[in-house]
Simulated scan of single mutants.
Amino acid sequence: MTNDCGCDKARAELEEYLRNEICRTDAADIRAHLETCEGCQSELHVGIVLTQTVQRACKETAPEELRDQLLARLRTLQSH
């Protein structure tokens, strides 16, 4: 990253930063940028909330009764 504001670069690599998928140097540059840029801090917050929401949603399972109803309905539709 360059020594300027770096908003474009920080925002472009934010998802990779959140998943720890960028090199240490770029991560350090983004971290330093985030310390001083409120706009990018806001983007980071949105990214964190979105990531956590998706992670929670992926862990949830449908109630057994709903699963049974869906399977019964699918079987009915397949038999026609």
Rank of each mutant, 00 (worst) to 15 (best):
E65F: 04
T53I: 04
R67D: 10
A28T: 04
D8L: 14
L34K: 03
A72D: 12
R56K: 15
D29E: 12
E64P: 12
Y17K: 03
C58A: 15
L66Y: 13
H33I: 03
C37Y: 00
R31T: 03
A57V: 09
A32Q: 11
A62G: 09
L50V: 15
C37W: 00
G39L: 06
L74A: 14
A12S: 15
A57P: 04
N3P: 02
G39R: 03
D4S: 07
L50S: 15
A10L: 05
Q69E: 11
S79M: 09
D29N: 06
D26S: 07
Q78G: 02
R56D: 13
D26R: 07
S42F: 10
L77H: 04
E35T: 07
T25K: 11
E64S: 09
E16M: 12
K9D: 06
L18D: 01
E38M: 09
E60D: 09
G6V: 04
D68Y: 07
C7S: 07
D29K: 04
Q78S: 09
L66S: 13
T53M: 09
H45R: 15
C7A: 06
T51V: 06
L34G: 00
D8F: 14
L18T: 00
T61V: 09
T76C: 14
D68S: 11
C37K: 01
A57T: 10
D68V: 13
K9I: 11
G47P: 03
A62Y: 13
K9Y: 09
R24A: 09
L44N: 02
I22R: 01
C23T: 12
R19C: 00
R75E: 14
T61S: 10
T25H: 08
E60H: 13
L34A: 02
M1F: 08
L44M: 05
V49Y: 04
Q69P: 03
L70E: 09
A62W: 12
A57R: 10
E64Q: 11
V54P: 05
E16H: 11
V49H: 06
H33C: 06
L50T: 15
I48Y: 02
S79C: 01
H33W: 02
G39Q: 02
A62K: 08
L71Q: 13
L34N: 01
T36F: 11
E21M: 04
Q41S: 05
D8M: 10
E15R: 06
H45G: 13
L77N: 07
L74R: 10
E35N: 08
C23N: 11
T51H: 12
Q41Y: 01
R19W: 00
H45P: 10
R73L: 14
A10D: 01
C40P: 01
D8P: 08
R75N: 14
L77Y: 06
A12C: 10
K9V: 14
R67E: 14
A12N: 14
K9S: 07
R75F: 07
L77A: 08
A27P: 01
E60K: 14
M1Y: 05
C7N: 06
L74H: 06
L74G: 12
H45E: 14
S79W: 08
L77R: 09
A10S: 03
L14W: 08
E38N: 08
L44I: 03
R56T: 10
G47F: 01
G39Y: 00
R31H: 05
E35F: 06
G6E: 00
H45K: 15
S42W: 07
Q52I: 10
H80V: 12
G39S: 06
C40W: 00
R73S: 12
T2A: 10
